[in-house]
Amino acid sequence: MELDSAPSPASSQKVTFARGGGAYPLWVRFGEGTIEKVDGVMVLDVGDAVRGVREAGS
């Protein structure tokens, strides 16, 4: 699992390496910016989830 407050090329390399080793990597983002899509890597954007909840409550 990789946690990021901002997009990082190093993080992309880490999850790609883990996937290549047979892992099922999860990349969690909780800050600004977006995460590039990486085949075989699950991405959870906590910021998008929070925005959705806020908008639903408006």
Rank of each mutant, 00 (worst) to 15 (best):
V15H: 00
G47C: 11
A49R: 12
P25D: 06
V15S: 13
S11R: 09
P25C: 06
E32Q: 09
G47I: 01
V41A: 03
L3G: 13
G31Y: 09
G22F: 03
A10Y: 14
W27Q: 03
R19F: 09
S12A: 05
T16Q: 03
F17L: 12
R54F: 03
L3R: 14
M42C: 05
E55R: 14
R51Q: 12
S11D: 10
V50F: 11
V50L: 11
E32K: 15
V38L: 11
G20M: 04
S5G: 14
G57D: 08
E55I: 04
W27T: 01
S12D: 12
D4Q: 03
S58N: 12
S12T: 14
P9H: 11
V41Q: 04
V50N: 02
F30D: 03
G57F: 02
L44I: 05
V50R: 01
D48E: 14
R54T: 03
G31L: 09
G22W: 01
F30G: 14
R51G: 05
G31F: 13
Q13T: 13
S8H: 13
V15A: 02
A23M: 09
E32C: 05
G40D: 02
M1S: 13
M42W: 04
D4M: 06
D39Y: 12
G31Q: 01
D4C: 09
T34K: 14
S12K: 09
G47V: 04
A10F: 06
V38C: 06
A18I: 07
